[in-house]
Design a protein around this nucleic acid. Structure first.
Length: 425
RNA sequence: GGAGGAGUGGCCGAGUGGUCGAAGGCGGCGGUCUUGAAAACCGUUGAGUGUAAGCUCCGGGGGUUCGAAUCCCUCCUCCUCCGCCA
């Protein structure tokens, strides 16, 4: 959530910042100003009346409760009290409307985020490794996986419909080994491993910014006691310190979790229908950090390096891009996407997204730290995938496929598979 | 699932209709004393909002009342006992 005080204080700067997200977003902000003006006036007037009421009530101390004076006072204060209640109702209405409006507005892009409307304006900042060279025509991952007998879309479709997959045998094992490798890497880099709930309440989804705007993207339980299936471990990890005031000594807090992620993928019909790219359910190893505003930019660089490290030890060619303002996610101020090379499809595909969300999530989830005595500030939150496990599996299938139909296992992964070097059909 | 009980400041805990944002203790911070430390003693110590006066917050929401931490309703959470269960 954006800072209400900042919007009221510097409307033009806020309009300009939101305009970088698109003009439609700026228009959504406009009703805020009238609401804020009315709210401020009403609030000030009502606070004053409340003060009068409080003072007035003290008069009963010296009066005979059944006397005429008490009766009169009761009447006077009753009228005052009725006025206060009416005003309070209106104040509550305004606050609710204002809250809904603010909750639907995306974060301000950081100054370092490039301008731009869509992915064509993203900026490549780094490239690592070389695309593998084949003496045969490399196949897409679904062909590699199915011919090895370790990836099955048909069986998944029969029980769960489209956008699901079944991994079998070495495929399932390979996925587990990848997750293990990623968790171990994160742990050695100072992240605390967490096993969080996969189902969360509405307020947790609001805290990290998935709701209220993207409800159609989420799966939720039916019946009483509504719960949402997490679309990413970012949700439970960010909410870990909800409504806390942290000691600055604790910062930065670094967490890693390996969880399934559930996404309805509403609005992406017909997109990435083949293969494992876009699934309703996938596993991801997610990194989340809570830190001070002063160090969040540096922490983003480290987070990005933590994610890149996994691709490097797996020997996967990738590039790193900085997303432009128009292509960035709702809560992010700045985002690096890591895109892995998929030779079977001759393209780079997103495998990680590392973002700093400034105080946007922290304000929603009320996560503060004691910056100085009597001076509490919102933390900055960061999140990044390290990595999307399913997509990493894809990358292995496409990059390590051999001419004879087998699959080579990168060295870093072998210890997790009992030393296995090659997978044969 | 059934029956009971409880949620107060960083922690413990008093407070059952009116100067209560809340006694007391612990912890924290500052000081006195000490060569230093401990102990003892003194002071200080929740959050939000507002330029300020002030206003709001005693699990969340709603209600009764001139006035609610205190009474009522409701939701949430935790505990105890019984039942069921991976």
């Amino acid at each position: 959530m954006l800072d209400r005080k900042l919007i009221a204080k510097d409307p033009d700067r806020c309009r300009a910042a939101l305009a970088r997200r698109g003009e439609a977003t700026v228009a959504e902000l406009e009703p805020f100003f009238d609401l804020e003006t009315e709210w401020k006036a009403l609030k000030a007037e009502n606070d004053d009346k409340k003060h009068q009421l409080k003072q007035g009530g003290r008069g009963f101390k010296d009066l005979d409760p059944k006397g005429a004076e008490a009766k009169e006072l009761r009447q006077t204060l009753g009228t005052l009290s009725d006025g206060i209640k009416a005003a309070e109702q209106r104040i509550r209405e305004i606050e609710q409307t204002r809250e809904q409006l603010l909750l639907a507005l995306p974060n301000f892009p950081d100054e370092a985020t490039p301008d731009g409307a869509d992915e064509s304006d993203n900026v490549e900042v780094a490239r690592w490794g070389e695309p593998p060279v084949f003496d045969f025509e490399p196949r897409p991952h679904w062909e590699v996986g199915e011919s090895l007998g370790i990836l099955d879309f048909e069986a998944a479709a029969r029980m769960s419909g489209s956008r699901f997959a079944v991994l079998r045998g070495a495929g399932a094992r390979l996925e587990r080994a990848l997750a293990q490798l990623m968790l171990d890497s994160a742990r050695s880099r100072g992240y605390l491993e967490v096993a969080p709930p996969f189902l969360v309440r509405r307020h947790a989804m609001e805290g990290s910014g998935q709701l209220p705007k993207f409800e159609q993207e989420a799966f939720k339980t039916a019946g009483e006691g509504e719960l949402f299936l997490i679309p990413t471990a970012e949700v439970p990890l960010v909410n870990l310190h909800r409504e806390e005031i942290l000691d600055p000594e604790q910062l930065p807090l670094k967490y890693v979790a390996h969880t399934p992620c559930f996404r309805s993928e509403a609005g992406s019909h017909g997109k990435d229908v083949r293969g494992l790219i876009r699934q309703h359910q996938f596993n991801k190893v997610e990194l989340v950090k809570l830190t001070t505003p002063e160090s969040s930019a540096q922490e983003l660089e480290e987070l990005r390096a933590d994610a890149e490290h996994i691709l490097e030890i797996l020997g996967l060619h990738y590039r790193t891009i900085r997303l432009c303002a128009g292509d960035m996610g709702f809560s992010a101020a700045m985002t690096y996407d890591l895109e892995v090379w998929l030779p079977g499809q001759q393209t780079f595909r997103e495998i990680s997204s590392c973002s700093v969300c400034s105080d946007f999530q922290a304000r929603r989830a009320a996560i503060r730290y004691r910056a100085a005595p009597k001076k509490n500030r919102f933390v900055h939150t960061l999140n990044g995938s390290a990595l999307a496990v399913g997509r990493t599996l894809i990358a292995l299938f496409e990059n390590y496929q051999q001419g004879d139909g087998s699959l080579a296992i990168p060295e870093a992964l072998r210890p997790y598979l009992g030393g296995l070097e090659t997978l044969t059909p």
